[in-house]
Simulated assay, not measured.
Amino acid sequence: MEVINQKAVRTDNTLLAVTHLTQLLSYVTGFGSLIIPLIIWLSSKDKVEGMNEHGKAIINFQISLILYIIISIPAILLLGLGILGLIGVGILGFILPIVNAVKASNGESPSYFMTIKFIS
């Protein structure tokens, strides 16, 4: 008798939404916007339906925001354009996780604006 190892995949839109909202931890604590979603994604990407797609989108978005911040800091010396970049990163980093948490709770795919795909 052969036993086939089947993993139970469950649908959990609440966990997907919470994973998106954990990106807002950096506004409260100053850190955690990359680490906490990474831990949630790695621990449940095989157990929750859609977590792999949402987790990759979150990690790509957070790495892109870090890259935009690194680019914006020296750009402050160029007529203050870096300040506009930092303000834009702050606004996008606050609004897009909320929008995508609502999308995740409705069962839709995530869409982050200006995200570079580091993990595909």
Rank of each mutant, 00 (worst) to 15 (best):
Y112M: 05
M1I: 14
T29K: 01
L84G: 06
V18K: 02
I4A: 06
L77G: 08
I76E: 01
Q62V: 04
Q62P: 02
G32A: 07
S64K: 05
S44M: 07
L79F: 14
G90A: 03
I39G: 03
L65W: 15
I87H: 07
I63E: 04
L96S: 13
Q23M: 09
T29R: 02
T22N: 04
A17D: 02
Q62W: 06
L25I: 08
N52W: 03
L34T: 14
Y68Q: 01
K103C: 01
L67T: 15
T22R: 04
S44Y: 09
G30L: 04
I58G: 09
P97Y: 14
L84E: 06
N100L: 03
I71A: 10
S26K: 11
E2H: 14
S26Y: 15
T11A: 04
N5W: 12
G50Q: 12
Q23P: 00
P110K: 05
V18G: 01
M51A: 06
V48K: 00
F113E: 11
I66H: 12
H54T: 11
I39R: 09
V48H: 03
V9W: 08
T14M: 09
M1G: 12
V102C: 12
S26E: 13
A57S: 11
L34F: 05
H54D: 06
G50W: 07
L86S: 13
I40L: 10
Y68N: 11
V28N: 05
I119R: 10
E2P: 02
V9P: 07
L78V: 14
V28T: 10
G90D: 01
L65M: 14
Y112I: 10
A75C: 12
D46T: 14
E53D: 13
W41C: 05
L21H: 11
T11R: 12
T19Y: 13
Y27V: 10
G30E: 00
L15C: 06
F118H: 05
L15N: 09
D12G: 02
G30A: 03
K117C: 04
P74E: 11
H20Q: 09
L77V: 15
L96G: 03
V3H: 15
N60W: 08
L67C: 07
I95N: 05
H20R: 04
P110I: 01
R10Q: 12
I40W: 06
L79S: 05
L16R: 01
S43C: 13
S109K: 15
I58N: 01
N52M: 04
Q6R: 13
F31I: 14
S26D: 13
I40T: 03
R10K: 15
V9S: 06
T14W: 10
P97E: 07
S26W: 15
I66V: 04
I35Q: 00
Q23E: 02
G107H: 09
M51W: 09
Q23D: 05
G88H: 10
G32C: 00
Q23T: 07
S109R: 15
L92A: 11
A101N: 01
S26F: 08
P97I: 11
A75I: 05
S43I: 07
V48C: 00
V48G: 00
L16T: 04
L78W: 10
Q62G: 02
E49C: 12
L84M: 08
L21Q: 07
S26R: 14
I116G: 09
K47T: 14
F94K: 01
L77T: 15
S120T: 14
V48P: 00
N13R: 14
K47Y: 03
L92H: 10
L84H: 09
K47N: 08
L79I: 12
I69N: 03
L34A: 09
T29C: 02
L38M: 14
